[in-house]
Design a protein around this nucleic acid. Structure first.
Length: 567
RNA sequence: UGCUCCGUGGUGUAACUGGCAACACGUCUGACUCUGGAUCAGAAAAGUCCAGGUUCGAGCCCUGGCGGAGCAACCA
């Protein structure tokens, strides 16, 4: 072990991914004049999800860390699938995540002219031809992974004829699907993508940016690498499924480049999460079929959904940092994502009292008309967050779950004859209850309090087994609270043969609680404000919330040891 | 039955040009606690897909297997 390694270990330097290692090596070798330039290339046909966040963190993160730049480039080569409405949401989500492309907002459609010229150039060099065959025939001639393809009868047309045809394709003289432009490479290549790939097709639908200027549009493979080249991208990072496209990417770059510079495509593993689907197509189905309330439903793995759920950008970045970038197609445990939010919110979320399923407690020896304001620490993890006053009185709500008439031995909350501490207030003892005779449901719990045990005072340090949160009845504010659970009840809902992922939709993924009581300080809480409801979990104010009608979303529960014991 | 990529605790990652398999999450103890949270201390858990080979020494190099994924859209 050499000294450098020792030093690194002692400094606790986090390991770098194989991609970061390549960047470091390239920098060291002075490649591309020491430039680092990446790009994030979303297709504007859906909302960004946490899988995209993994790519964004890499693309922008590497540029940031190594003094480079990262472009935002919308991959808008297919006017029939793409819509302008997605562009704004994509930009908003990237900014929210904490990244900035400055003035470098580009569109593949910005390069349609250059791409067209390049196609013309390939035709002139005998490296591209117009094929008049229908899709089915072209596909048939392409062969299969185990069977080589055969050449198209149009493969050896003259340059003049190809040129004439291609230009007329773009003028709209031919029907969609009647002709395509193909690169002339190798129909017998073991790599399917090299078997004379289609590079231009006729589409007569207007494009959201270029209108009806073009009647032919480049395919992904003919646009992506060249756009990288035009923008001076050095490291073009994408997911593993593009691995087999790389020879084609390089082939086009070889036809295009004029000096040493060339962008390099590197592939990494995409993000898979347990109990989650990540395909844009399926997420769109959930939205269209009304199985969720929209792209930003808090159960969705979209960035806007996670945001509404109460996730912070920091927690998402932390999570992505944790899972790393490799070439192994991994399935990440959602609990790691949940851990990342808890970890982040623990430090920043103010603690408050909220009772989800209220049951009334009457403190029989507490003066009827009295209310006192007890002081509570806002966040034990961060003294600078200060404290607040919360009203306490004779009648309070506690959590239904915090009382058991017949408790097992491990249960140390309130039960007849037992004492608990009301956090920030007094120790109380239960000595009676009232039940609804017809349902058996507990309506009221009667307790006495010990005035000498007020928090912070001399004799207050008597030990009791449990501390409960509570809300004073008189001052309680009503709230609606939406409890979320995973959207699917199968670890891999999309990966089951012969089973549709919708079969695994969790019927209990949303539970609405309309009779919740929260402390009065929450009255003016604004959408996206985050709190820890003491002993329950982290909650975030929903967009639907108003001052007269508070609505909270459960982000994630606290670790719950009792839940394990009671199983 | 072609090409490409990948196989390290339960999960995700680490181990520089071979040198005591490490970290995080999770799990289990215990301490502390006015959150059954947080924190702290500790434990269990892989011998690196298999079989050979090279080597003083292999997760890493070589050979051969096995297993998984991707690739046959006028999608990206």
């Amino acid at each position: 072990m050499n000294e450098e390694k020792l030093n690194e270990k002692e400094a606790g330097k986090p390991p770098v991914s194989f991609i970061e290692q390549i960047i470091i090596d390239d920098l060291k070798a002075g490649k591309n004049n020491g430039r680092i330039h990446t790009r994030f290339p979303p297709e504007p046909n859906g909302y960004l999800h946490i899988g995209h966040a993994k790519a964004i963190c890499l693309d922008f993160g590497m540029a940031l860390k190594y003094g480079g730049k990262c472009n935002l480039r919308f991959d808008d080569t297919n006017p029939v699938k793409e819509e302008i409405e997605y562009i704004d949401s994509i930009k908003e989500d990237i900014r929210w995540l904490g990244f900035d492309w400055e003035d470098r907002e580009y569109y593949a459609s910005d390069y349609f002219g250059k791409l067209f010229d390049f196609a013309v150039d390939l035709i002139k060099r005998g490296l591209a031809y117009v094929d008049d065959q229908p899709a089915g025939v072209i596909s048939e001639q392409k062969g299969s992974p185990t069977r080589p393809g055969i050449e198209s009868p149009y493969r050896n047309r003259s340059v003049e004829e190809n040129l004439d045809l291609f230009i007329r394709m773009n003028k709209g003289e031919f029907e969609e699907g009647s002709r395509v432009l193909r690169a002339k490479i190798d129909m017998t290549s073991p790599n399917m993508h090299m078997r004379d790939p289609i590079i231009y097709r006729i589409i007569k639908e207007p494009h959201h940016r270029t209108g009806d200027k073009w009647k032919v549009y480049p395919m992904y493979d003919f646009a992506h690498g060249q756009c990288d080249y035009f923008e001076g991208i050095t490291h073009s990072l994408c997911t593993l499924e593009f691995e087999v496209h790389r020879p084609l990417y390089d082939w086009f770059i070889d036809q295009l480049r004029t000096d040493e510079y060339r962008p390099r495509q590197i592939e990494f593993n995409r993000l898979n999460l347990t109990y989650t689907i990540m395909s844009k197509r399926r997420l769109l189905e959930l939205v269209r079929e009304g199985r969720v309330s929209g792209w930003d439903d808090p159960r969705m793995p979209t960035l806007c959904g996670l945001r509404r759920r109460g996730y912070t950008p920091e927690s998402i970045r932390k999570f992505i940092d944790l899972i790393g970038y490799t070439k192994y197609e991994a399935i990440n445990d959602v609990t790691l994502l949940e851990h990342a939010v808890r970890d982040d919110l623990n430090l920043r979320a103010p603690r408050v009292f909220a009772v989800l399923n209220p049951v009334k407690v009457i403190i029989t020896n507490y003066p009827e008309s009295q209310t006192e304001n007890v002081e509570l620490i806002n966040n034990p993890e961060d003294e600078s967050m200060g404290s607040r006053k919360v009203p306490f009185s004779r009648e309070i709500y506690i959590e239904e779950e915090d009382f058991m008439e017949d408790p097992p031995s491990k249960f140390f909350r309130l039960s007849p004859g037992k004492e608990v501490r009301l956090k920030g207030a007094y120790i109380i003892k239960c000595n009676g209850l009232k039940k609804d005779p017809s349902t058996g449901r507990i309506e009221e719990i009667y307790c006495t309090y010990d005035p000498a045990t007020k928090s912070g005072e001399h004799q207050a340090d008597r030990k009791v087994k449990a501390t409960l949160h509570w809300v004073s009845v008189k001052e309680a504010v009503d709230a609606e609270i939406r409890l979320y659970d995973r959207l699917f009840n199968h670890e891999d809902p999309a990966g089951q043969k012969d089973r549709d992922y919708r079969e695994f939709l969790n019927p209990d993924s949303l539970k609405l609680l309309r009779n919740c009581k929260v402390e009065p300080s929450l009255k003016s809480a604004k959408p996206l404000d985050k709190f820890q409801f003491q002993r329950l979990g982290y909650f975030c104010v929903d967009y639907d919330s108003t001052e007269g009608h508070l609505v909270f979303n459960k982000t994630v529960g606290l670790k719950d040891t009792w839940a394990k014991i009671s199983k």
